[in-house]
Amino acid sequence: MEITVKVRRVPEQEGASRSVVGAESSGEMAGAAQPRTGKARTSTAPGYWQTYHMEAKPTDRILDVLMALKSEQDGTLTFRRSCGHGICGSDAIRINGKNRLACKTLVKDLGPGRAITLEPLKGLPVVKDLVVDMEPFLAAYRSVLPYLIADTSTTPTTERLQSPQEHARFEKTTKCILCAACTTSCPVLWTNPDYTGPMAMVNAHRFVFDSRDVAAEERFAALSDGEGVWRCRTTFNCTEACPRDIPITEVIGELKRAMIAQAL
């Protein structure tokens, strides 16, 4: 069938930040180099719409569509992709106004007869076409200590024991693939780039509720201030956007309750 695809094209941007995880300075430089102007916060990405027409099967993934466009019509079209089946998290974009993975959305899912619109994620700096700068996103990830902090005084020589029930307590948040669909669907982030965002909360939850972890309080501290969990307005955008079906709003609610319980 013939489909029409409208892609938000953004010419390559100067000053795309470097992404060196571990070198904290790079994230700062990226922030410091950009003045906080009103214009920068407009909700629409810069650039222009480009319309393509092509043949596609209803069962084609949107990623197949993008790859066919790049391969057959326009090699300058730029987007990220890797695994192609929703496990690597590279190709989260806005499809018909909703955050989704291009490789988990089929042409037939989008309703017949109307143009498919593809845009970069909102709330992260656009670098080129559908590619956004992931560095602010990863800075939020790092802020919640996203790694197991166990009691090292008693490390056993075999595995630490954990019951299936204890494992089930946090299993849902281990599914996160860091695709950024949730965080960039959050209206709080759109106006407040300092907001910790749902992804970091999901990853805090993953360790806070892990029976082997002892650093819940430190993560609570990172989630306590004006940009933390209390800023969540429960709009459920994140839950709807998550391609891994993590009930994110519920997860944030669990964190809030745990933090209150701890405060009392």
Partner: peptide, 15 residues
């Protein structure tokens, strides 16, 4: 471009 501040270096530290 929307910059992001380092959480540790926010201007106002809320209790």
């Amino acid at each position: 471009m929307i910059p992001r501040r380092d959480p540790a270096k926010r201007a106002v530290v809320v209790p």
